[in-house]
Design a protein around this nucleic acid. Structure first.
Lengths: 267, 267
DNA sequence: CGAGTCATTGATCTGTCTCAATATTAGTGG
DNA sequence: CCACTAATATTGAGACAGATCAATGACTCG
């Protein structure tokens, strides 16, 4: 019964195609010179509401035209930083995390293309986590004041924004359920199922996955140690559930994966 | 550094005062006949935005006038039910939970007065959990379509609503951090700290707490078994950290509680 | 007052962590 | 392009927190 369509993970199928165009002349540093409009973006079905008119799309295109490149390992924003804008991931992948006193970090989520970063900063006007690019990425800036204004003028966008926030709440709850009630194997099974689901929504392969994060980051996110992640991967591999080669995963037995995630959803 | 101001718990200080007025004539079943306007509600500082004008408050009063009583143990809504309205808790306390295949339940949150129920239903138009009253409670109905309309006309309310959703995301993330990185003692310490914080926001005692939920429910929420909850309570009691008498808790050493929650925030 | 739920406590078992050693990969500079 | 270095991943052995099983005690509510 547990719906695992929502854990937040990060993956990228293959290197973002044809992204060398912008490497030539970069006028303001890290500002991308490529211009992809929302209305022609291949992620618009994920980012934008259904039923938006052409005229409305024009307004959106103007408001959200600014882009920013973030190289792998660089921060998009920091915990505590002033919140002024949301970011939609156009290409690449990010992790959200907070620092703990012992110097370690706690990963709070993985985000992939088409997903929003920064929603938790609206309440306090400050970002409440760090967002780091796991690979060379590009994000669309959505200045929040302008987003509010735009949403006020475009009801279908306002509603869409509400739904996005609500989804985020739902997804976050699902993670809690996994963390509270499942053990290592089931957590990782749920992790992969979620991943597959999100890849599917983007029209990507549901069996071949290239992880962009370390075992440690996966473990942090799922509340297990990296050694345990590794052991479970090995076990999955031995049982024929998947092929594991470094960060490249091929899922062979989706049914077994579902069983694992489902069956262990018992407190 | 971990900010634990956000786990969602439920407590009620003392029996809700003077709630017998409505027991007389109930025309539509479970419709309360008492009429407390938002503008005169003692929770308005928690529910409503700052800087709302008198005129705007009038509109709010009209839109959100419907109330509903929910007796202890009854459901406010069920998982899968159509979502049409949010609910603001006026008095009482609720737990949110989902059923697992084995017949057990996974508690996903505890809500107290001034908090909203149903936010996760916006995205899918269906509630995604059950909401059960932990004591006799009263909620304010906030029909979502009307809320949207009202928010459209009252910018400060629209922004407030965004902030409430954002807070919810933040809170939910905090829980994940606790579940992913802390062990039993620290989880319970964080639980109490969050509780104290929310009581404080309501002007209630920060040391005397009356839990409205069972050890099992606490355990489910925090990902630990009820026996372990009990053991940790005993340990807290023996170490002079708090007095525990059934569901009545008196916190004696807030400093120790903070240390526990803080210090163990290491993965 | 009695039945049933809830809470406490003990003894044992197990999954995951910890510590440690090795292997592999990715990144860097000559 | 290759060698070198640091980061990442794998695997093993032992330790421990919390789960499990079980029994008793206490409270709640009809």
């Amino acid at each position: 019964m547990l719906d695992i369509k929502s854990l937040t993970f990060s993956i990228s199928q293959s290197p973002p195609p044809s992204a060398h165009a912008q490497s030539a002349i970069v006028v303001p540093i890290r500002r991308s010179s490529i211009t992809v409009l929302c209305s022609s973006c291949n992620l618009r079905k994920i980012c934008m509401p259904q039923g938006i008119t052409v005229d409305e799309f024009n307004q959106v295109d103007v408001t959200f035209s600014a882009k920013r490149e973030v190289k792998a390992g660089r921060l998009l924003f920091r915990n505590g930083e002033k919140f002024t804008s949301l970011f939609a991931i156009r290409t690449g992948a990010f992790k959200s995390y907070v620092a703990l006193e012992d110097g370690n970090e706690q990963v709070t989520g993985f985000q992939m293309s088409g997903e929003l970063l920064g929603l938790d900063g609206i309440a306090s006007n400050h970002h409440t986590c760090n967002a780091m690019a796991l690979e060379d990425s590009e994000v669309c800036l959505m200045p929040f004041r302008q987003l509010e204004e735009l949403a006020h003028n475009i009801p279908v966008l306002q509603r869409h924004f509400h739904k996005i926030m609500s989804s985020d709440i739902f997804n976050q709850k699902q993670i809690s359920i996994v963390l509270a009630g499942m053990r290592a194997e089931a957590r990782l099974a749920a992790f992969f199922l979620n991943l597959v689901d999100r890849l599917h929504a983007r029209g990507l392969s549901q069996s071949d996955i290239l992880l962009r994060m370390t075992r440690q980051e996966i473990g942090s996110y799922l509340g297990i140690k990296p050694e345990t992640v590794s052991r479970v991967f090995s076990k999955f591999s031995k049982s024929g559930l998947m092929e594991v080669s470094h960060r490249s995963i091929r899922i062979l037995r989706m049914d077994m994966l579902c069983d694992l995630a489902d069956h262990c959803a018992c407190a």
